[in-house]
C-alpha cells in the first residue's frame, strides 16, 4: 500500500517536473517587445491565497489590491539564490523611487515548517523595509504554489534538519487587480524589472 502511494507520488512529481520544464522552456523565452505577456495555452497564473505575514497576521491576495505585487518564492535557509533574488528585488524597489509606493514586494516561503513568521520577519527586514514575508500552513502554501505553478521539492540530507529545497526561481509581477502581468526569470537585472513595472503605473 505504502509502496503504491510512494510510486504515485513519485510519478506525480515527475509529471509536474516535466510539465514545469516544458512550460518554463516555452514561456520564459525573452519577450522583449511584448508589453504584456499573453501565455497561450497555459491557464492563467496566480489567484487567491490566504497566508500569514511576518507579523503573524492573516492576509489574502485582496490585502494588496490596488498595488502591483512582485512575488518571489523561496526559503530563508537558502544562502545563495534566494538572498540574491531578494537583493535584486530590493534594488528594483530602490530604482523605483517614489513609484515604489505602488508596489508590494512579497516573498512567499516554500518551506513553511522552518519559516515561521518570526524567521520570515528577520529575513525580509534585512533586504527592504517594504518587503512582505508570507508563510502559512502546509496546505495554504501548497495551494498558493499550485496556483503559481511553483515546483518545490525537499531534498533530505543526512540530518533531517538540514534538508534543502529545490524550487523554481521566477519572480511574478501581478497587476493592481491581482492578475499576472509578467514573469521574470532568475537573474533579470533590477533596471529591467523596474522599467517593466513603470510601464504599468
Amino acid at each position: 500500500m505504502n509502496k503504491l502511494f510512494a510510486f504515485l507520488i513519485a510519478f506525480f512529481l515527475l509529471l509536474s517536473a516535466v510539465a514545469v520544464g516544458l512550460w518554463a522552456a516555452g514561456v520564459f523565452e525573452p519577450q522583449e517587445k511584448a508589453s504584456s505577456s499573453v501565455i497561450l495555452g497555459v491557464p492563467q497564473l496566480g489567484g487567491s491565497f490566504t497566508l500569514v505575514n511576518q507579523k503573524g497576521e492573516t492576509v489574502t491576495d485582496k490585502s494588496y489590491r490596488g498595488k502591483l505585487m512582485l512575488i518571489f518564492f523561496g526559503y530563508t535557509n537558502c544562502p545563495d539564490v534566494c538572498p540574491t533574488e531578494m537583493q535584486d528585488i530590493a534594488l528594483t524597489m530602490q530604482q523605483l523611487g517614489d513609484d515604489a509606493a505602488d508596489v508590494v514586494p512579497i516573498f512567499i516561503t516554500v518551506d513553511p515548517t522552518r519559516d515561521t513568521p518570526e524567521v520570515m520577519a528577520d529575513f525580509v527586514s534585512a533586504f527592504d523595509p517594504s518587503l512582505v514575508g508570507l508563510s502559512g500552513t502546509e496546505k495554504q502554501i501548497d495551494d498558493v504554489k499550485e496556483k503559481f505553478r511553483v515546483y518545490a521539492e525537499k531534498v533530505p540530507g543526512d540530518d533531517p534538519n538540514y534538508y534543502l529545497v529545490n524550487h523554481t526561481s521566477y519572480t511574478y509581477l501581478m497587476g493592481r487587480d491581482g492578475k499576472l502581468i509578467t514573469v521574470f526569470s532568475y537573474g533579470t537585472p533590477p533596471e529591467k524589472m523596474a522599467a517593466k513595472i513603470r510601464e504599468q503605473l
Binding site: A25, D80, D159, S169, Y170
Partner: peptide, 17 residues
C-alpha cells in the same frame, strides 16, 4: 556542524544546490 562544497545550478527553471 557540517560543511559541504556546493554548486548552485539551474535546471529547467528549478534552482538546485
Amino acid at each position: 556542524d557540517k560543511v559541504q562544497i556546493h554548486e548552485s545550478v539551474m535546471q529547467g527553471g528549478v534552482m538546485k544546490m
